[in-house]
């Protein structure tokens, strides 16, 4: 049996999750005695495919086609399912990214495979893989086992580690899968890139602002702090609903789920629905003038103070420490 790792790339560049997924596959492969194969799909990917070797992919398969330059749910699913069948894959790992989450159920239906979604941990017990993740907005944890012969897991980005090992042997093979026009019944034709800061789901540092920021005109304090840290700007639903910030910045149960290494909550009370989206952050810092705000119950560090005084001071201190 083999493990297939889907290595996501866009515009000829791997997503960090591609390395995380490959390395997670390598670890599982070691525990279960299974060969690891990474799959890269796109327009021009043979040049980058070799990068996956350092993360533990012994074999790397590429499927290149100009029509696969942009993502197509139907065509990508066909390609991966086809490769999984040819290789007799027993386990398929994908990132729980917008692409991976879109592909996983399609593959599940094609391969009669159960999908364990958005896993934050994978453990091997005997010959079983037990996948865990938070549910009910982080109010409970669930562990599941996939019982079908083919098992699919999507891994929450930023949770699994990816550290390259130099000198690992790997081979890159080009594969072809026949694609007809009918396989592109849903197809991306362009991507509108939001310029500037990273997306909250990909950033390793997020600075979020809430209603305590008092108005959209004060979010430059959040933005400057985020920029000094090279981080993303996040928001509570209260400020998104008020129209102060765009909804793609919203963190929480009805926003995005994030797992950065550092999450700074500024003027955010810490409602359960907000915490739902960010409780798996590695380090949480809260700045709030109310010492009883619930956000302090989950924060690793807190300053009980006014954001309008604390944020500029924090920005200045960080500039000093980071030498900017």
């Amino acid at each position: 049996m083999k493990i297939l790792a889907f290595a996501e790339q866009r515009e000829g560049k791997f997503k960090k999750s591609a390395f995380e997924v490959t390395q997670a596959a390598k670890k599982l492969g070691g525990q279960l005695g299974m060969e690891v194969i990474a799959v890269v799909v796109g327009d021009s990917v043979s040049g980058i495919a070799g990068e996956l070797g350092a993360y533990g992919a012994g074999r790397i398969l590429t499927v290149q086609d100009p029509r696969l330059h942009f993502y197509s749910t139907t065509a990508y699913a066909k390609v991966i399912a086809e490769i999984a069948r040819r290789e007799n894959a027993g386990v398929i790992l994908l990132p729980a990214s917008q692409m991976g989450k879109d592909l996983a159920p399609r593959l599940g239906a094609k391969l009669n495979a159960g999908v364990a979604a958005d896993c934050t941990a994978l453990a091997v017990g005997g010959s079983d893989i037990v996948a865990s993740r938070p549910i009910y907005a982080g109010k409970a944890m669930i562990s599941v086992k996939v019982t079908s012969p083919v098992k699919i897991f999507t891994l929450r980005p930023n949770v699994f580690t990816a550290s390259p090992v130099n000198g690992a042997a790997s081979s890159v093979e080009a594969c072809t899968v026949d694609l007809a026009d009918a396989d592109f019944s849903a197809k991306a034709t362009s991507v509108k890139v939001a310029e500037g800061r990273p997306d909250v789901t990909e950033a390793s540092i997020i600075v979020s602002g809430g209603r305590g920021m008092k108005g959209p005109e004060h979010f430059h304090l959040i933005e400057t702090l985020a920029d000094v840290l090279g981080g993303a700007v996040g928001a509570s639903r209260a400020v998104v609903d008020a129209g102060w910030r765009p909804h793609d910045e919203q963190v929480g149960q009805t926003g995005k789920t994030v797992s950065p290494s550092l999450y700074l909550a500024c003027g955010i009370s810490g409602a359960v629905q907000h915490i739902a989206g960010m409780s798996s952050s590695k380090c949480i810092v809260a700045v709030n003038k109310d010492k009883d705000a619930p956000i302090f119950q989950i924060a690793d560090y807190g300053i009980v103070g006014d954001v309008f005084e604390v944020l500029p001071a924090l920005t200045a201190e960080l500039k000093k420490t980071l030498g900017k």
Binding site: G108, N112, A113, G114, V115, A116, V130, P134, I135, G138, K139, A140, M141, I142, S143, V144, K145, V146, T147, S148, S279, I284, K291, F296, Q297, I298, A299, D300, Y301, G302, I303, V304, G305, D306, E309, V310
Partner: peptide, 22 residues
């Protein structure tokens, strides 16, 4: 195709450090 092995409460997080008040 997916079987629940266990459900549990998340480990309680201990309250963090209040670094200061201004």
């Amino acid at each position: 195709l997916v079987e629940v092995v266990a459900m549990s409460k998340p480990p309680a997080k201990q309250a963090g450090k209040i670094v200061g008040t201004d």
